[in-house]
């Protein structure tokens, strides 16, 4: 770690008080950032600890929930409103990392997690376009078991590691941002960028801008929702493929469907094509498989991750089948 300064912010105003230069970083639970600094993947001159900012979960006027950025993953997962109204979000959170890490990790930090690509982490030994723009990518042509089949580019195929964000993506969550001058809101779908030629830019977050919280809209379908994570061991591992899904069936047809995938793309992946293929259809295994095929038609394998295409297809079908229950 390069030496850095540290200060605690007890309010958003305080957090944004010092005109932050480009290397000042906000510190949440530290579960990712401290590791990245220690591995020299990232450097910072100054850390502003925002983990002690007020952390509340509040009802919004439209029947959704507001979640402060400093809310810990454990608290969010255990909140009975989340468990009752958005079970997929609880399940996604609870499938992530370990209890100790969930006790530390904040919602804001989770949104900004960086990839677990081993080449990204190997600072002395591997080239990475995400670390150094234009340096080249040693992952492509190397071990790609954990890499993306959707949304990747020639420059980067690293996956976004968060579970929470997959569920949030399916729920049309909106991120609230503040840089001290301007408050803005971005739908999660617009918050994350695809790598293209600039894999070092992962989000639309501006320099010095703080994630203050997220707004989860009301979603009737989410009452019947779940999250399934497929990984290399039964717990405490990152996803190979994960599926967040919510389904509302009315009069024998799918009235609302929310589907997002994790572990397969550089960002939490909203499966809009699959959703479109399912809307208004009668739930059936055939329909689920066709929808998965529609989503995965653009999938491209790098070799080591080719299994993710059939795995994603069958996991989507299994999860949707579970949600449809007797209706399918």
């Amino acid at each position: 770690m390069t030496p850095f300064s540290y200060r605690v912010a007890t309010s958003t105003t305080e957090a944004l008080a010092a005109a932050p230069d480009s290397s000042e970083r906000f510190l949440g639970g530290g579960t990712n950032l401290v590791d990245l600094l220690r591995q020299n993947v990232e450097q910072a001159d100054a850390l502003v600890d925002v983990s002690r900012l007020p952390a509340s979960i509040d009802e919004t006027e439209d029947g959704g929930l507001w979640v402060g950025a400093a809310v810990r993953n454990t608290a969010l997962a255990a909140d009975p409103r989340i468990g009752a109204r958005y079970p997929m979000l609880s399940r996604a959170l609870l499938s992530g990392a370990s209890a100790q890490i969930r006790n530390m990790a904040t919602v804001g930090g989770n949104l900004l997690q960086r990839t677990r690509c081993a080449y990204f982490y190997d600072v002395p030994g591997a080239r990475c376009n995400k670390r150094v723009s234009g340096a080249g990518c040693d992952a492509i042509g190397g071990f790609t078991r954990y890499h993306a089949i959707l949304g990747a580019s020639e420059q980067c195929a690293a996956t976004h590691p968060s579970d929470m964000c997959v569920a949030l993506m399916a729920l049309d969550t909106v991120v609230h941002l503040d840089d001290g001058n301007e408050k803005r809101r971005l739908p999660l779908s617009e918050f994350y960028r695809l790598p293209g030629n600039t894999p070092h830019f992962e989000t639309e977050l501006r320099t010095g801008e703080l994630v203050t919280g997220i707004q989860i809209p009301s979603c009737r379908a989410a009452v019947n929702s779940t999250y399934r994570k497929v990984r290399d061991r039964s717990s405490y591992a990152f996803a190979l493929v994960s599926v967040a899904a919510a389904m509302r069936v009315e009069n024998g047809v799918i009235a609302d469907i929310r589907l997002a995938l994790g572990g397969v793309a550089p960002r939490p992946w909203r499966a809009a094509k699959a959703e479109a293929a399912l809307a208004g259809r009668a739930p059936s295994q055939e329909a689920f498989r066709n929808a998965a095929d529609a989503e995965l038609a653009d999938a491209r394998a790098l070799g080591g991750n080719a299994f993710k295409i059939p795995l994603a297809r069958s996991t989507i079908a299994a999860v949707l089948g579970e949600l449809a229950g007797d209706a399918a």
Partner: peptide
């Protein structure tokens, strides 16, 4: 020393956390 084993677990204000990832 990177949050992958749990050997450093302590209780911080009663909550179990990883002391290796806590400054």
């Amino acid at each position: 020393n990177q949050g992958a084993c749990g050997a450093c677990t302590v209780l911080l204000d009663g909550e179990r956390v990883l002391s290796c990832l806590t400054l």
